[in-house]
């Protein structure tokens, strides 16, 4: 089965096993392709499109995270079109959400010369911090809709199905059934979602409280003292 395929990436030839994605093939020769939504532990949905590359003969840019290497493919990972798409996606992200807890994306922005203020008067996706359970907080102003939390909560790991999507298009947000607080959902507080979240949108409660200036001593009282914080912001 392990048939090999030879292709060219940025002018360099590389031989990979059949079934290898362009992302992995590029890695083998030290060509780095940026990713946002891709994660080893979740099913790839190819939705952020930051990994797009130009494949000779194809009109559209192709997502390297899922496209399988093909024999004699000629791939360009930094063509003008590619860079324009990546830069614009990053600029749109910056005009949409709070990237302060997403250092990797900030680094990417530097790399692609993306201007965080490219889109003036843009409507941002903002929401208040949801602090409704003892384990983690949800700050969807920082959510970049990578879908990973929904995926690990469902078939990719936990089969709990506590969260899904609300709205559609630009107004899409991650949410629970009729916005119920986490303790009133099927959530088992496994923390898998927090583990895969690439930004600070899902954050361990402790970390969040420390950031808010709450002292470790106070936190330990809270944690041992009661199951749910009474001072829920939601009310």
């Amino acid at each position: 089965m392990a048939e090999n395929i030879t292709l060219t990436i940025d002018g360099k030839q590389v031989s990979v096993e059949a079934g290898t994605t362009l992302l992995k093939a590029a890695e083998q020769i030290g060509v780095e392709i940026p990713t946002i939504c891709f994660h080893e532990a979740t099913t790839a949905n190819a939705l952020c499109r930051i990994c797009v590359v130009e494949v000779e003969g194809q009109r559209l840019l192709q997502p390297a995270c899922i496209l399988k290497a093909g024999a004699d493919m000629k791939v360009r990972t930094r063509s003008e079109k590619v860079v324009r798409a990546r830069r614009t996606i990053l600029e749109m992200l910056a005009s949409t959400m709070d990237l302060s807890d997403a250092p990797e994306i900030l680094t990417m922005m530097d790399e692609y010369g993306a201007n965080a203020d490219r889109f003036p008067q843009a409507e941002r996706r903002e929401s208040e911090v949801k602090d409704d359970n003892p384990m983690y907080i949800r700050d969807y102003s920082k959510c970049l809709l990578c879908w990973r939390c929904v995926q690990v909560c469902a078939e990719d790991a936990q089969y709990t199905y506590a969260i899904n999507f609300e709205g559609r298009g630009y107004e899409t947000q991650i949410g629970t059934f009729f916005d119920r607080p986490i303790p009133e959902t099927t959530c088992v507080l496994c923390g898998q979602c927090v583990g895969v979240c690439p930004t600070g949108a899902l954050k361990p409660k402790r970390e969040y409280l420390l950031e808010q200036g709450v002292s470790p001593a106070e936190i330990s009282v809270m944690n041992t003292g009661r199951k749910r914080r009474a001072a829920d912001k939601r009310g």
Partner: peptide, 21 residues
């Protein structure tokens, strides 16, 4: 288009909104 984008992929999810604005 902003109303009808499904919101799955970034270019269209945010692009239709920015285009509309």
């Amino acid at each position: 288009f902003a109303h009808e984008s499904c919101g799955k992929c970034y270019p269209c999810q945010m692009g239709t909104q920015r285009q509309k604005e």
